[in-house]
Amino acid sequence: MKPKAADKLATGIIVFFALLIVAVLLGMLGFILFRGLSHISWDFLTSEPQTIREGGGIGPQLFNSLYLLILTMIITIPLGLGAGIYMAEYAKPNKLTDAIRLIVEVLSSFPSIVVGLFGLLVVVQQFDFGFSLFSGAIVLTIFNMPLMVRVTEQAFRSVPKEQKEAGLAMGLSKWKIITSILFPVALPIIVTGTILAAGRVFGEAAALLFTAGMTTPHINFSDWNPLHHNSPLNPFRPAETLAVHIWKVNSEGLAPDAAQIAAGASAVLVILVLIFNLLARWLGRALYRKFTSIK
């Protein structure tokens, strides 16, 4: 009977811990949504933050986060795709390729704050881009690129090799095969991976403290000329993102409703990350169905 009893006990413990993890997640989500949703209103989402008084919003921060994400993806996607395609299709199995693989691994393990410091030193100061959306986008690109490379490489490797052979036998150039035959097949995986990576970028704060900055100058939301100083689209202005704002409110917030603002902003952040997750899954599946027309 003893082994049987041990078996039951062990199973019980495993189930308990597994359910504990579920409970922790549900507890955290519940807390965030319960505390945060009540604070979310149209006014909160669109108005400017207040330093000392009550009733500040997160309008500029929300905009900054979304805009920074778009800027980052504009830089990351072409670079990540290119490097991933290189790894999947052009790299020969030799020392150089091993070295590049190691680089990708190291780069993806770098603490984001170290990448942020590098951005501060090189992009913000050396190249004199200052605390700006552009500096932030560069740093987030560095932070995000290893993931994009890996996703792209995996996606291309998952394409059946017969597809490539068919293209070769038709006398297509390798590049034409990559862009016209392999890429459409790889696209669903790439899209899913990219959106998930975007969610990660969206929540990143440590790398941005010293690059995109912790302040937002007054933005004139009626001026959409990116070249104008006060335009929201000006990529060379400082921009505090939502994640950075949450950190700042928590560590040095003076407003009396700082806790509520942090909760509201956290809820917005979590909901957006959730949306990214669902979108990634849905879009990946929809694209897969479209390309294979498997009903």
Binding site: P160, Q163, A166, A169, M170, G171, L172, I181, T292
Partner: peptide, 28 residues
């Protein structure tokens, strides 16, 4: 490239492109 236009090839396992029937033929 030039050579492979003159010599077509078909494999053991069918490997149509993930495209429409029309596009599969018109692609080349």
């Amino acid at each position: 490239t030039v050579l492979r236009q003159k010599i077509g090839m078909v494999w053991q396992r069918p490997n149509p492109f993930y495209k429409s029937i029309y596009e599969n033929i018109a692609f080349g």
